[in-house]
């Protein structure tokens, strides 16, 4: 295991909405420099955990630590320079162009009298280049396909220039081709040195792209570690109640989950 301190961590936290507690005494360390994917069945608390990491949800007990300090004690602007967030369904104002939307990512680096520095300009161009949307720059976001739009939002978060990126189900509304495209982009961002945390639904995609998996059920972490150690038949059954076999992905040699056929399907 690495000894480098975790840049982002949840410490003994109670997370929930109003009086409904989703997680109690939850402790999670996001390992530095890894592509962490949180998996688990619906309502297991994985989105709640991501919200807590993104300071969208304040724990009623315990703390969320960014670089070892309580995330809620720091100015939201300081946090926004360390940690970028791609929400599940972000809202694009009517008629906004791709370049304008990506430029919004510069918000934490700007001010009333620092509206558009040369650096802002260069970083936005770079973010559009990295997500391959430079050609779309003057198009209206409304008229893009789902996959293109997701790349635009990722570019906006990249323009924020944060070493940490949180992505809430980045592939949910996309077809399979665009899901892979977005995940390949995430993998590239990880290779370039960023620490990523994503919530994903697809177990096989998680196993293929993650370098660190956190499996949750009923608000608690059931297992965490490298995909090869986590995606095993008994852990998958424990987390998802899904009887399955694990084979090796012929493309990437990562674990591939094959749900067991029910007796009636065998004919």
């Amino acid at each position: 295991m690495t000894v480098s301190p975790s840049p982002l961590a949840v410490e003994n936290a109670t997370l929930g909405y109003g009086r409904l507690a989703i997680s109690e005494g939850l402790t999670v360390d996001v390992p530095d420099g890894e592509f962490t994917v949180i998996i688990g069945p619906n309502a297991c608390g994985k989105s709640t955990l991501l919200k807590a990491l993104a300071r969208m949800l304040k724990p009623s007990a315990g703390r969320v630590l960014l670089d070892g300090r309580d995330i809620h004690s720091r100015s939201t602007r300081t946090v926004a320079r360390r940690l970028g967030l791609l929400p599940q369904s972000p809202i694009a104002p009517d008629g906004i162009t791709v370049a304008d939307l990506v430029a919004r990512g510069r918000y934490p680096h700007q001010g009333i009298l620092r509206q558009w520095s040369a650096r802002d300009e260069a970083v936005v161009a770079e973010a559009m280049e990295a997500t391959d949307i430079t050609d779309l720059a003057s198009r209206s976001v409304d008229e893009l396909s789902g996959g293109q739009r997701q790349r635009v939002w990722i570019a906006m978060v990249l323009a924020q220039q944060t070493p940490l990126l949180l992505l809430d189900e980045p592939t949910t509304y996309l077809d399979i081709t665009h899901q892979i495209e977005v995940l390949d982009l995430c993998a590239k961002l990880h290779r370039e040195g960023r620490t990523l945390v994503a919530v994903l639904h697809d177990l096989n995609q998680a196993a293929r792209y993650a370098t660190h998996l956190i499996a949750m059920r009923d608000g608690a972490v059931v297992a965490e570690g490298a995909p090869a150690d986590i995606v095993t038949d008994d852990i998958v059954e424990k987390v998802f109640d899904l009887p399955c076999r694990i084979i090796e992905d012929p493309e990437t040699a990562t674990p591939l989950v094959i749900p067991r056929a029910r007796p009636r399907d065998l004919g």
Partner: peptide, 17 residues
Amino acid sequence: RGLDALRLGEVTAVGLG
């Protein structure tokens, strides 16, 4: 500036700081 960020929705606005 804050109102402008809020045009992107609450979650994105918080994310942007």
